[in-house]
Simulated scan of single mutants.
Amino acid sequence: MNSSISPADVTIRPITGADEIALFNRLPYTINHELADDLVAQRRRPEWMWVALHGDRVLARVAWWGRGGDSTPLLLDILDIEDGAEDLTDVAQALYDTAAKQVLPSGTTPPEYGRFLPADWREDPDTYLAVRRRMGVLENTGAHLTVERLRLEWRPGGGLPAPDARLAFRPALDTDELVALMTRTLDGTLDAHSRTDLAQMSPHEAAVKHYEQELATFSSPRQWWRIGTLGEDGEPIGFVVPARNTYHPVIAYLGVVPEHRGHGYVDGLLAEGTRILAAEDVPRIRAATDLGNVPMANAFARAGYVNFERAINMAWQ
Rank of each mutant, 00 (worst) to 15 (best):
T89H: 03
D56V: 11
A100Y: 06
Y265E: 03
P249M: 00
R155D: 09
N25R: 03
A8I: 02
D174V: 12
R45A: 06
L53E: 07
A60P: 09
G304L: 00
D9P: 15
N25G: 15
W121C: 10
A130T: 14
N245S: 06
G142H: 10
L53S: 06
L145A: 04
E205R: 13
A243V: 07
L186F: 15
L173R: 12
M182Q: 13
L39I: 04
L129I: 10
D267N: 12
V306W: 01
D80N: 14
H204P: 01
R275M: 02
D19V: 13
M49P: 15
R61C: 15
H260T: 12
P46T: 01
A315H: 07
P118Y: 02
T109C: 02
L95R: 00
A172C: 08
R132M: 14
I285G: 01
P283W: 02
D290Q: 04
W121D: 03
G255W: 01
G157V: 14
A243T: 12
A252K: 07
P110T: 09
R170V: 10
E235W: 05
V266A: 09
T11G: 03
A36D: 12
A279H: 10
D38I: 01
A206T: 05
A41S: 12
V10P: 02
I21H: 06
V266C: 05
A311I: 03
L95H: 00
G238R: 11
L145D: 08
P110L: 09
F308V: 06
T185E: 14
I15P: 15
V256W: 11
T109G: 02
F169Q: 07
A279V: 04
A278G: 05
W48A: 01
H33M: 01
R302M: 00
S194V: 03
G231T: 01
L167I: 11
S219W: 04
W224Q: 05
L76W: 05
A315Q: 07
L95K: 03
Y305L: 00
E34K: 10
S202C: 07
A41I: 13
E139N: 06
V306G: 01
E177M: 12
W50K: 04
A206D: 01
Y29G: 13
T274G: 00
Q93V: 12
Y265S: 05
T16D: 14
I5F: 09
A63P: 15
T189P: 05
P111D: 02
L104T: 11
W64R: 06
R275F: 01
A279P: 09
T229P: 09
A8C: 04
I15Q: 04
V257P: 14
W224C: 10
E212I: 02
R26F: 11
R43N: 08
R13P: 00
I21V: 15
A278W: 05
V147S: 07
G292V: 08
L150Y: 14
P125K: 05
W121R: 03
A271D: 00
R286A: 06
